[in-house]
Simulated scan of single mutants.
Amino acid sequence: MFRGILAGGLALSAASLIMTGPAAYADLQAPYARAAAIVDADGELNNGKNILKTWRASTGRYCVMVDKHVTTSTAVIQITPRAPRRLPFIAYRSPSATCHETNTITVGVYDTSTGRLADGGFDLTIS
């Protein structure tokens, strides 16, 4: 039963992404988010709340350094793609072989057509 619910939720999420297109800019004054970031495909931080810096480590691999008073190891993190056919995911929470920094989230982005890492912007929210 749980698998059916999970599969239905994933299908619904995918359908909503296809129908709505890229996510709108996040309200970075969101009082309920501990941290948030809008990251461009080149790794630049477009806008952020409690984010120290972001960078593109390599093709499809990004690092998001969060302020030290926001703990990433136990946080609920949501990532939304900013481009069609891109699927971002959390590769490591902190530290990773890619980012080498404490309290840094490593994000990977896949091209859903090829199944390979590809550059693509994303919105990140930490609750």
Rank of each mutant, 00 (worst) to 15 (best):
F2L: 09
R3L: 13
R3C: 07
G4F: 04
G4L: 06
I5Y: 08
G8T: 12
L12H: 08
L17C: 04
L17N: 02
L17K: 01
M19N: 09
T20A: 10
G21V: 12
Y25V: 05
A26Q: 03
D27F: 09
D27Q: 01
L28D: 04
Q29N: 13
P31T: 06
Y32L: 13
A36I: 11
I38W: 02
I38A: 09
D40W: 09
D42I: 11
L45W: 03
L45R: 04
N47Y: 11
G48R: 03
K49P: 01
N50H: 13
I51H: 01
I51E: 01
K53V: 12
T54W: 06
W55R: 13
W55F: 14
R56Q: 15
G60S: 07
R61V: 15
Y62E: 05
C63F: 00
C63E: 03
M65C: 02
D67P: 00
H69P: 08
T71C: 06
T71D: 14
T72R: 05
T74N: 11
T74W: 06
T74K: 13
A75S: 14
I77P: 08
Q78I: 11
Q78E: 11
T80D: 02
T80S: 05
T80H: 00
P81Q: 07
R82L: 15
P88F: 06
P88E: 02
I90C: 07
Y92K: 13
P95H: 05
H100Y: 10
H100V: 09
T102I: 11
T102M: 08
T102A: 09
T102C: 00
I105V: 14
V107Q: 00
G108T: 00
V109A: 00
T112S: 14
S113H: 12
T114G: 11
G115Q: 00
G115I: 01
D119F: 12
G120T: 10
G120A: 10
G121C: 12
F122L: 07
F122I: 09
T125W: 01
T125F: 04
T125L: 14
I126P: 07
I126L: 15
S127A: 14
